[in-house]
Simulated assay, not measured.
Amino acid sequence: MIKAVFRIILAVFYGFAGYAHIARPEPFLLITPPWVPAPDAVIFWTGVAEIAGAIGLLQPFSRALRQAAGIGLALYALCVWPANIHHFAMDMASADGGMGLGYHIPRMIAQPVLIWLALWAGEVWGKPRKGV
């Protein structure tokens, strides 16, 4: 039961984030590292990936699809970590100190938690239990 609740929470989180990437890409473009090619397309497709992962986590019929969604979202979180690190460095170097360590440190800690949560909620780790 708890895994199902976290699966829903994670799906809502990624569904909203995916929508935000598509509907309002500007804030994401600002933190995209300069070495990322075609940043507009990358931001758009990351939004699509987040939405697809959210849908995959929520579907009740195929454990394999939930697992694929969990793996995909975990890999996604790993791949966007450099953008979060870039944002951290860029923001903290700004004249006003940016959003501060109180924002960036939890965000850095959250990334591995999101990776683990995607794998756990996507049933990649752990034996499935009846009713979960």
Rank of each mutant, 00 (worst) to 15 (best):
S94V: 06
A4Y: 07
V124N: 06
V48M: 03
G47H: 02
R24K: 02
L58I: 04
R63V: 11
L114W: 13
R107S: 12
M108K: 11
W116F: 15
G102E: 09
L78E: 02
G70R: 04
R129K: 15
A41S: 14
M99V: 13
L117A: 15
I105S: 10
L73E: 03
S94C: 03
G47L: 00
R66K: 09
P34S: 14
P82E: 07
Y14H: 05
E26Q: 08
Y14Q: 07
A54M: 02
P39N: 09
F61M: 10
K130N: 15
L78D: 05
W35N: 14
P128C: 07
H86Y: 14
L73H: 01
K130W: 15
A17R: 00
L73M: 08
G131T: 13
L65E: 06
L65D: 07
A89I: 14
L30M: 00
A11E: 03
V5A: 13
L75I: 10
L58A: 06
G15F: 03
A11K: 02
G131C: 15
L119F: 09
A68G: 04
I8Q: 07
G47V: 00
S62H: 12
T46D: 02
M99H: 14
G53H: 05
R129V: 15
M1R: 11
W45V: 07
G131A: 15
W45L: 14
I2Y: 09
F16G: 03
A77T: 12
P106R: 07
A49Y: 01
A93L: 06
M1V: 07
G56S: 06
I55Q: 02
R129H: 15
A83V: 06
G72M: 05
A74D: 01
G72F: 03
I9M: 10
Y14P: 03
L57D: 05
P34H: 13
I8V: 13
A41Q: 11
P106K: 05
A93T: 09
I43K: 02
P27K: 00
A64P: 01
K3H: 07
Y103S: 08
A23L: 01
P39C: 06
Q59Y: 12
Y103D: 13
F6W: 13
I85H: 07
N84A: 08
I2H: 10
A118T: 08
G70I: 03
G97D: 09
G100K: 11
A64K: 05
T46M: 04
Q111T: 14
